[in-house]
Design a protein around this nucleic acid. Structure first.
Length: 546
DNA sequence: AATTCCCACAACCGCGTCCCC
DNA sequence: TGGGGACGCGGTTGTGGGAAT
């Protein structure tokens, strides 16, 4: 570390007026710059001694009274994360891991809250664990939330007075007063069958539902997956994933919602399956955007399909008419940022339709969005959204057909899922403005540049696996188009990405490392690389791209 | 053996909130 | 009531070390 020469003045921390941190030779103008970087044992000792003597708090006084060249903030962090006597060290126990997953499902990224529930553990520790886990699961193409957790959270939610927001940590955490004008009306999930879907990491905004309806059969074929970049060195998980390819491509793996995956390492989860893509023959494009990632600021993005290996289960969504209306109208509530987190573009009913991203995207919006996202921090309440995603809205089609329907204890449930309130209307304003500017109000014009802008904003549009949409049904979508595609937000300029993901033969594309050349996949897309597009929405480090 | 890559984690940073004056 | 400091929170970055090449 930069112990010593690498020291810098900590931003946000006032320099010491006088300190005896002799080892620091950066003393400028008589002021000792506050040290940054790893703490030394000496510093630790000083801090511990001070706290033992004076107790916690008044952190800024430490540097004054002890001469410790650390700002109060740094002292507090060091104490809280490492020096506190009651801290638990070492790896998380399986039980702790299970709790973390559960808490994340409930609270979202409320690390401090989670830490409060886990004695001896710090928020930073939990956060790091979670982020690492996310990456790992992503890489393996595994669902972040085990089905049992989803189910549990769902049950908890149902039991609570405010039930309705299932697995929406943000919603549950948020004070109701925070619900602003952007709050999306509750979404009604009919025939909720959470467990049948098992875990999913995607947050699918309700607005997506209507898309499914309209795209009817098209979305039956989507595979949610994590884009995966080939690792230079294969991991066990990769191996597993690859090993699944065959079966996934040809059969519908069975997902056991009752298996507790909470603490499993990827390497020991060979039984995991991907309860998705009930219709492997479907040809509907499908896009999934995960929250918080860097945006593809340039539209030089390619249409290269994600060379992912795994598929994620896709919940179906349904909107009530009123909800649809809400989304359609310009003044309607835009999706919350949380909903923005996950973006999935659903292809129109006409699967031959191209989803190429308009080439005219200037990247500005993406930049803005990205900035906003970054700044705000991706409040990727995966689970919240995941849970929503997990909830099929329709059960007309026997889920069993999908191969993972049997276990759906709550098939008859009808629930309302309030969209998490948006805490920042700026992005919506920008997006909306952009859309307006671009004139995307030309409903149904999926190729409209403006529409594409909303990708970032758009709730995931996914095919409902259990949607009663027969192929025939998919052809009758006029009405649905009005309700759904009217809202430009459903389409992103990253259409190409969609295109790429929306493979006629998802499986093949997914697992075909050479799917760049997949004729089906790039039927109408350019050769751009979806990496940027995906990266723009995925909060994770996408190690999935070549 | 050197290099590269990746993971895990510690620490930093910016921002929001609380509290006191 | 508002200004400012203290503190907390969540996201991001940087670093060390191990594994793979």
């Amino acid at each position: 570390m930069n112990d010593g020469d690498g020291r810098k003045m900590s931003k946000g921390c006032q320099p010491l007026s006088s300190v005896e941190e002799g080892s620091n030779g950066d003393n400028i103008g008589g002021e000792v710059p506050l040290k940054k970087g790893p703490w030394t044992s000496t510093e630790d000792a000083i801090l511990v001694e001070y706290v033992q003597k004076h107790g916690e708090g008044n952190w800024n006084a430490i540097q004054k009274s002890t001469g410790l060249a650390r700002c109060g903030k740094s002292c507090r962090l060091r104490w809280a994360n490492h020096l506190k006597p009651d801290l638990k060290k070492g790896a998380f126990s399986p039980e702790e891991e299970r709790k973390i997953i559960e808490f994340h499902a409930k609270f979202g990224n409320k690390w401090a809250r989670m830490a409060a529930e886990l004695p001896g553990r710090t928020d930073n520790e939990i956060k790091n664990y979670w982020n690492t886990r996310i990456k790992r699961m992503q890489r393996a193409g595994l669902p972040v939330y085990p089905a049992n957790i989803c189910r549990q959270v769902l049950n908890d939610s149902q039991e609570s007075p405010n039930a309705g927001s299932v697995m929406s940590g943000a919603s549950q955490n948020s004070d109701l007063s925070q619900i602003d004008s952007y709050t999306v009306p509750d979404v009604q999930f009919k025939n909720l069958k959470l467990t049948q879907y098992g875990p999913t990491i995607f947050n699918i905004p309700e607005s997506t539902h209507s898309m499914f309806e309209q795209s009817a059969g098209s979305f039956q074929n989507y595979n949610m997956m994590f884009p995966m970049k080939p690792r230079k060195r294969p991991l066990e998980t990769d191996i597993i994933g690859n090993s699944l390819v065959g079966s996934i491509s040809t059969t519908v793996p069975e997902f056991n919602p009752y298996v507790d995956y909470s603490s499993e390492k990827i390497t020991d989860s060979p039984k995991l399956s991907f309860p998705c893509d009930p219709n492997l023959n479907s040809n509907g494009p499908f896009h999934v955007y995960l929250p918080g990632s860097y945006a593809g600021l340039n539209d030089n993005t390619s249409s290269v399909p994600i060379s992912g290996v795994k598929k994620l289960e896709l919940p179906s969504f349904q909107f009530s008419e009123t909800q649809r209306v809400g989304w359609d109208t310009p003044g309607s509530h835009l999706p919350s940022l949380e909903s923005v987190d996950t973006l999935i573009q659903s292809p129109p009913a006409d699967q031959t339709q191209s989803y190429l991203v308009s080439s005219d995207s200037d990247g500005l919006l993406e930049s803005v969005v990205y900035g906003s996202k970054t700044k705000r921090g991706a409040n990727n309440n995966f689970l919240q959204q995941t849970a929503d995603n997990c909830m099929p809205r329709s059960s007309t089609v026997n889920p069993c057909d999908t191969g993972w329907a049997e276990q759906s204890p709550s098939a008859d449930q009808t629930q309302s899922y309030p969209v998490s309130p948006d805490t920042d209307g700026l992005l919506e304003s920008i997006v909306y403005g952009s859309k307006t500017k671009r004139g995307w109000d030309e409903q149904g014009d999926l190729s409209s540049p403006g529409a594409s802008v909303l990708t970032v904003h758009t709730p995931i549009s996914m095919g409902s696996v259990d949607e009663p949409q027969s192929v025939e049904a998919t052809q009758d979508q006029d009405v649905k188009h009005e309700t759904v595609f009217q809202d430009p937000t459903y389409y992103s300029r990253k259409k190409e990405c969609v295109n790429q993901i929306g493979l006629k033969k998802p499986d093949a594309a997914l697992f075909d490392s050479g799917w760049r050349g997949n004729p089906d996949a790039d039927n109408k897309s350019d050769q751009s690389n979806p990496k940027d597009d995906l990266g723009a929405v995925f909060p994770f480090d996408f190690h999935g791209y070549p």
